[in-house]
């Protein structure tokens, strides 16, 4: 069964069909790219897949389970986590606390355990601390765990966002322009990190990206969106060579 399947997914805002008849199948363990010119509807697709918007037509399925119309919270708990195009970390919280917020669903103690520091609380929090540090370590952020998130350099904030999303133990990870604003060296590092995350966490990843080097470097398949409709779909190299795709990006 496919990890993610969308069927004729669509949404209109007033008379504008922002996304129309969107069909996509992402297999388990795949690294899938979603590309297209600015305003094509890529982030809208992410917003549909995470419950920020409810689709007006069609639906989508995570491992066969229909998730259309569920709230962002429910969808996250079913196993979809994401990052944001404009970084949305909890800036006033420490780096490790950002990750812990994601981990907290796994913690199992009551208000009273926490308030009076009972053994169960200590045990669970210690466990969380260990897991959070392991995650930060993967992204080379363990040394900065007590910094405020807003004090991290840009590239590391992007990494922290991925770490925070992974902390919610998703099955499918959505990355919205992970390389935006990065220099070539940071992008190269990011590509390694993304591949590592896929292998290490056995993750399925769907990502939006404008950096074609990143897309052609790590994505096995891509879908191209243009004005809300699907322009092309398939193996990355073939799709990127498609004259229609080139035209959509560069014009006639």
């Amino acid at each position: 069964m496919a990890m993610l399947e969308t069927k004729n997914l669509g949404i209109s805002f007033g008379g504008l069909r922002a996304v129309d008849e969107f069909n996509l199948t992402v297999e388990r363990g795949q690294l899938y790219g979603l590309i297209g010119p600015n305003g094509a509807g890529k982030t809208t697709v992410f917003n549909l897949l995470t419950g920020v918007y409810a689709p007006t037509t069609g639906g989508f399925f995570l491992e066969g389970k229909s998730l259309a119309g569920k709230t962002p919270l429910e969808i996250n708990r079913c196993g979809i986590a994401r990052t944001f195009q404009n970084i949305r970390l909890f800036k006033e919280m420490s780096v490790i606390d950002n990750v812990k917020v994601g981990l907290h669903n796994a913690a199992n103690y009551s208000i009273f355990d926490g308030l009076f520091m009972l053994p169960r609380y200590a045990r669970e929090e210690k466990e969380l601390q260990t897991r959070a540090r392991e995650l930060l370590d993967v992204f080379g952020l363990d040394g900065e765990r007590d910094y405020l998130a807003s004090n991290l350099p840009y590239g590391k904030q992007r990494k922290l966002e991925i770490a925070r999303a992974l902390a919610t133990s998703p099955k499918l990870l959505l990355l919205d322009e992970p390389a935006a604003g990065m220099n070539p060296q940071e992008t190269a590092e990011l590509m390694e990190t993304i591949c590592f995350v896929r292998d290490h966490f056995d993750m399925t990843i769907l990502l939006i990206e404008h950096d074609m080097k990143l897309v052609s470097g790590i994505c096995e398949q891509v879908t191209v969106l243009n004005f809300g409709t699907t322009l092309a779909q398939g193996q990355t190299a073939e799709v990127l060579a498609d004259p229609r795709v080139v035209r959509a990006y560069l014009g006639e």
Binding site: P72, R77, M93, H104, G114, E125, A165, T168
Partner: peptide, 22 residues
């Protein structure tokens, strides 16, 4: 120090992101 407390801090900063983090 507790998960509910840090959930409160997270919600106070960004409701949308907090919701998407479970």
């Amino acid at each position: 120090k507790t998960k509910l407390g840090s959930a409160m801090l997270a919600v106070s900063e960004d409701k949308g992101a907090a919701q998407l983090m479970g």
